[in-house]
Amino acid sequence: MYRLFISHSWKYSDAYDKVSSMLTQGGINYYNHSVPKDDPIHTNGTDKQLYDAIEAKIKGCSCLIILAGVYSTYSKWINIEIELANKYSKPIIAIEPWDSERTSSVVKNNATRVVGWNSSSLCKAIKELA
């Protein structure tokens, strides 16, 4: 079983759901280290509490999966996730969004591997890196 942290913004939960679906389609059995949507830290916690929760989740995962959309460049939390992944030597798999003309150079420059928006390339990267 793989221990995966799927970076996401709950504002864009459809992308998170699609990544989860790709993992299932690819036969990846995984434990989800992402901070759950129903965790009160998202809405009622402080930045420090969310940082600590993300750090604990990343510390115990095998690898991070981050969507490399342009919005990622401007997310302070994705930058923190990248920093924590590097701190704990966790591989980062960046997924280039389907039909995207612009992607986040911040995510791609920090990625161990950049894959396309498809189940087979994502699952192959997980099997090789996690």
Rank of each mutant, 00 (worst) to 15 (best):
Y2S: 07
I6N: 02
H8W: 00
K11A: 13
K11E: 14
Y12R: 15
A15Q: 09
A15M: 09
Y16E: 11
K18V: 09
K18M: 10
V19T: 15
M22Y: 13
L23E: 08
G26Y: 04
G26A: 06
I28S: 12
N29V: 09
Y30Q: 11
S34Q: 12
S34R: 08
P36K: 08
P36N: 02
K37I: 05
D39W: 01
H42I: 01
T43G: 13
G45S: 08
T46Q: 07
D47Y: 08
K48F: 01
Q49K: 13
A56W: 01
K57F: 00
K59S: 07
G60A: 08
C63E: 01
C63G: 06
I65P: 03
I65M: 04
L67Y: 00
L67A: 11
L67M: 15
G69E: 05
V70W: 10
Y71E: 12
T73M: 07
Y74R: 10
S75I: 13
K76T: 05
W77V: 02
I78W: 05
I78M: 11
I80M: 14
I80L: 13
E81C: 09
E83W: 08
L84I: 10
K87F: 02
Y88D: 10
S89C: 09
P91F: 03
A94T: 01
I95T: 07
D99S: 07
S100M: 09
E101P: 11
R102P: 00
R102D: 09
S104K: 04
V106W: 01
V106D: 02
K108L: 13
K108A: 06
N109S: 14
N109W: 02
N109L: 10
A111T: 09
A111F: 03
R113A: 13
R113L: 09
V114N: 03
V115Y: 04
V115T: 10
V115C: 09
G116F: 02
G116I: 01
W117Q: 00
W117T: 00
N118K: 14
S121Y: 03
S121F: 03
L122G: 08
C123F: 01
A125C: 11
I126G: 08
L129V: 13
L129W: 07
